[in-house]
Simulated scan of single mutants.
Amino acid sequence: MSGPAIFLPSRETLAMYEGFIQAYETRELSFDETYRDICVLLSGSPLLGPRLARARSLAEPLEKILGGSVRLTGNRFYLTSPEGNLEAHLVAEGHRKLASLTHLVLNGSLLQNSVLFWDEPEANLNPRLVSVVAEILRKLAAFGIQIFVSTHDYLLTSELSMAMEFSELFPMAESADIRFFGLSVSPDFTVQTGNTLADLTDNDLVGEFADHYDRQSEFMRRLLNKQAGASSVKGERK
């Protein structure tokens, strides 16, 4: 990969954009440099000509979710829809993250051969949108953007895993080479790799969901046994 590298932190930056770059460069702030870097990238104007047409094909699914387009007016971001302009800080945080991604696509920051690092894209995101985000990630990857996602979300990892497990059912435009990495620091630092989520044999995501299912099944068994015992006592009293 020879293009630029972009890091999207788990905390969105669209609402804090106004005045952030100047404040970061002139004052002591409790934010690391990655927030300043992403604000600089967000400051870019939209592309023009054929490059904008290609970028818009990637941004349209995101704009459909948002219900409008992202605009930088002055030093403030807005979500523009048929109902009017909505200031970024009034938009739900999960949607602001998608709006940031949309603007980065349209202003050319996310180009073919670039690299995207996205920390916990599911944070503060409506669960109904997780499958859509997985689809968008696949489209960006198929476009030629290398993507690294760090996540603790079972839904997102499962959606991406299904794209590999049932790859013949996914359109070619959405196909992407996906790899999974499981990191562990206890007792020693280890890395597992696999083509699907199931290939990670020591996986806290899958393990905890399996434990949750077992606990739920046990509670249900105990409740049914308790109800059956109460019915038996009532029958004996009669």
Score class of each variant (00 low, 15 high):
F166Q: 05
R221K: 14
V206A: 00
C39P: 06
K139L: 05
H89W: 12
L62R: 03
A230T: 08
A53Y: 01
S232C: 07
E83V: 01
K238Y: 09
G74E: 05
T196D: 07
E218G: 04
H89R: 08
R138W: 10
S217P: 01
G68S: 10
L197S: 06
G94P: 04
N124A: 15
G108V: 14
P50D: 15
A88D: 05
Q112M: 05
D32S: 14
S131C: 00
L110V: 13
T201C: 02
E159V: 05
D177Y: 08
P121N: 04
S109I: 05
K64V: 05
A176V: 02
E25Y: 07
S167N: 00
V40P: 03
T157N: 03
L58S: 04
F219M: 10
Y213M: 11
T34M: 11
R221D: 13
E174H: 06
V149F: 04
N75I: 04
N113M: 13
K234H: 13
S161C: 09
I38R: 11
S81L: 04
S81P: 09
E93G: 08
Q192I: 09
K97C: 04
K226N: 13
A23I: 02
G144L: 14
V105K: 01
F166W: 03
L137W: 07
S131Y: 00
N203V: 08
N195D: 03
V185Q: 01
N225H: 01
L160M: 03
R128L: 14
P9K: 10
L52W: 06
A228N: 14
M172G: 04
F143C: 08
S43D: 01
N85F: 01
F77L: 05
L200Q: 04
F209H: 12
Q146S: 07
A23W: 00
K238E: 09
T193G: 11
G84L: 10
P82W: 01
L125Y: 08
A53C: 13
T190N: 01
P121L: 14
E25A: 07
E12H: 07
L116M: 08
A15F: 11
A55T: 06
S30D: 14
G49N: 01
P121W: 13
E120C: 15
G182I: 04
N113W: 12
T196G: 02
L223M: 14
L160N: 02
K97F: 06
V133R: 14
A134M: 12
G49Y: 04
L29M: 15
N85W: 04
G235V: 04
A88K: 00
E174I: 00
F117A: 15
R215N: 15
L101K: 10
S43C: 02
A99Q: 00
I147R: 10
P127Y: 00
L111M: 12
N124L: 15
L116F: 02
N107P: 14
A228Y: 03
R96P: 09
F20Q: 02
V130H: 14
E83D: 09
D119A: 04
E120V: 13
L52Y: 09
M220H: 06
S57W: 01
